[in-house]
């Protein structure tokens, strides 16, 4: 179903969920849960948004049923650790590439995806100051390196 314009701020989280459907269904589940919660705050009034969110909720409920044996789904604290570890793993990979002067699409995407997953951590409560800084840095780095490569400059 096409994403209504009012829900555009969650489109990258939903794309990350799709990308992880097979690779890591727990990540996919929490990306969709974050998108659901954020989507309801963005716009649950207009008919097309409501329709979209109802479909997303259907998907979440069936995912939850399929994964009812996963601790990461049934226990919030385990889910929190799962997402945080995954986000930081992506951040560390991208940061190592950056420090090694190896600039490429993969590391940009890793920086950006780690920032999206740090957004998703908000599902579990307030972000720590450290994760807020990580998210800001990762998003800035992804944008900066992307723009450098696009204009043919070498990122510093």
């Amino acid at each position: 179903m096409a994403l209504p314009a009012q829900l555009r701020p969650i489109q990258h989280h939903l794309r990350t969920a799709q990308e992880h459907e097979a690779r890591d269904p727990v990540v996919a589940y929490y990306c969709r849960l974050y998108a659901m919660q954020s989507g309801m705050k963005l716009d649950s009034k207009t008919p097309e948004c409501r329709k979209f969110l109802i479909k997303l909720m259907d998907q979440l409920e069936s995912m939850k049923k399929e994964m009812s044996d996963h601790d990461s789904i049934t226990q919030e604290v385990v889910g929190n650790a799962h997402i945080e570890n995954y986000a930081l793993k992506m951040f560390i990979y991208a940061d190592n590439e950056d420090r090694g002067g190896r600039f490429h699409k993969n590391m940009i995407k890793s920086f950006y995806t780690s920032s999206l997953l740090l957004d998703v951590l908000c599902v579990f409560g307030e972000l720590s100051e450290e994760n807020i800084q990580h998210r800001k840095y990762a998003r800035w780095k992804a944008t900066y390196i992307h723009n450098c490569l696009k204009s043919g400059e070498t990122p510093q």
């Binding site: 849960l33 659901m36 919660q37 309801m40 649950s44 009034k45 008919p47 409501r50 969110l53 109802i54 909720m57 979440l60 409920e61 939850k64 789904i73 049934t74 226990q75 919030e76 889910g79």
Partner: peptide, 27 residues
Amino acid sequence: TGSVGTSVASAEQDELSNRLAKLRDQM
């Protein structure tokens, strides 16, 4: 039709909020 539309909308919104709360409760 205006008021009917509005009440359908808010009923669906409430239902979504309840479903979300239920989804999270079982976590």
